[in-house]
Every structure is written in C-alpha cells, then in structure tokens.
C-alpha cells in the first residue's frame, strides 16, 4: 500500500461529503480543459492504467507504488489528478478504499499529482530533470502525508465523540484527540517513511530510465 486508503465508516459525514464535492469540482475543471485538448486524453488514460498496473509489480515489500507524483510531472497537475481519480475509482470498486470516501482518497492521492506537477514546472521543468523530479516528488509526498494526518485528526475527534457517547461519559475531547493522533502517528510514521523512500527512489529511477531511453521525453511540454 503506497498511501492510506481510507475506509468507509471512519470519517465524519461532512468531511467525506466535502471531499466528494471538492473532488467533483476539480474533476469537472480538469475535464473541461481536457475536452479542449483531446490529444492528451490517451496520455491521461494510459497513466491511470499504468498506475493500476503498477500495483502488480512486486517490490519485495508489502507495499506498492502508484506513481501519482510522476503522473503530475508527466501530465501536468490537473491531468495527473484526473488520472489518479480514475485509479481510485477502480480501486474503490475492489474494496481498496471506501466508496463514500472516494472524494477524500482522490484528494489525498491527487494532491501528490497536483503538488508535484506544479512544483516541477515551477522549478523549471525538464531542464534539470533529476533534481527537479526529486524535489517535486519529495514535497508532494510530504504534503500528501500531512494531509492524511490532518484527516486522521478530524476522524479522531469524531470517533472520540462517538466513543464518549457509547460510554455515556464526559471525556475531555482535546486530550482524547491528542492521544488518538499520537497513537495514529506511531503507526503511520514507519509506513510513511518506507513508502516515501520507495516512491521517491522508484520515481527518480523511472524518470532517469525514460530520459536515458527517450531523451527529451520530459521536454514535450504536454503538462504545461
């Protein structure tokens, strides 16, 4: 698992509904742009298919990469987000991430494509390919991980309230939330450390490999 696939029933309703609305708005914006640039459609679909197929590649660890940040670099932020949304729809149908939390999951993974895409082009694109890919992917993964912690924090408040209601006691919500978040981070941090290292290494190696066999491929300018 390369990132936290939120499950159904973990988040408060207003958060997953908000996630669905935000995801829908971003998707509609991306689709409106894509409609006017139809030549990019196969690229977006292929990147989504590669993201799905990439989960089948065994790394020797119980994790897989999804190349979301690389999708943002190759396709540009919005198209990268779109590709990751499609990956999330298919994985949600397989029970890999909930259906109601599809919006939140898409924003969490899509944020990698958005941040990496923006940063890569902001740093000057393919002129200094590997350093720019490294910085863009690393920052994108950090942002995505922080967003997961933020979402977990909100979920902790909601679940804490539910817990207090179940036991009909007056729990100090602030203390409960901080305990929840502390334990969550203890579990989540090692997973993130391994995932960031693997995803960053794989993204850089893939970018380096493509640059070697197809020089100038990243200079196409499709993502701009």
């Amino acid at each position: 698992m390369s990132h936290m696939h939120m499950s159904d029933g973990v988040l408060p309703w207003w958060l997953w509904v908000g996630g669905l609305v935000c995801s829908l708005l971003l998707t509609l914006w991306a689709l409106a742009r894509l409609r006017n640039q139809r030549r990019l459609l196969p690229g977006v679909a292929i990147m989504a298919a590669v993201g799905l197929a990439a989960m089948n590649i065994p790394l020797g660890l119980p994790i897989h990469v999804n190349l979301a940040a690389l999708a943002g670099i190759i396709l540009g932020p919005l198209n990268g987000f779109l590709a990751m949304l499609i990956v999330n729809i298919f994985t949600a149908l397989l029970g890999h991430g909930g259906l109601t939390v599809l919006g939140i999951n898409s924003l969490l993974v899509g944020s990698e494509a958005l941040v990496a895409g923006l940063l890569f082009y902001g740093l000057g694109g393919a002129r200094r390919l590997l350093p720019n890919v490294a910085v863009a992917v690393l920052v994108a993964l950090m942002v995505s991980s922080l967003l997961v912690v933020a979402v977990a924090g909100v979920a902790g408040v909601e679940l804490g309230t539910l817990s207090a209601h179940e036991h009909e006691d007056d729990v100090d919500n602030g203390k409960h939330e901080s305990n929840f978040l502390k334990t969550f981070i203890i579990f989540f941090a090692p997973l993130v450390a391994v995932w960031v290292a693997v995803e960053l290494t794989v993204s850089m190696l893939v970018a380096g490999y493509i640059n070697k066999v197809r020089g100038g491929w990243f200079l196409r300018g499709d993502g701009s």
Binding site: V10, A152, G156, T183, F184, F187
Partner: peptide, 16 residues
C-alpha cells in the same frame, strides 16, 4: 482485508 487493515490503524489508535 485491505480496508480492514487501514481501518484497524484508526481502531487501534482509538483505544476503545
């Protein structure tokens, strides 16, 4: 098992 694994991170963190 995958959603159960991820939900278990939340469940354990909750300590309830």
């Amino acid at each position: 098992l995958v959603p159960v694994f991820f939900a278990s991170v939340f469940a354990i963190s909750l300590r309830d």
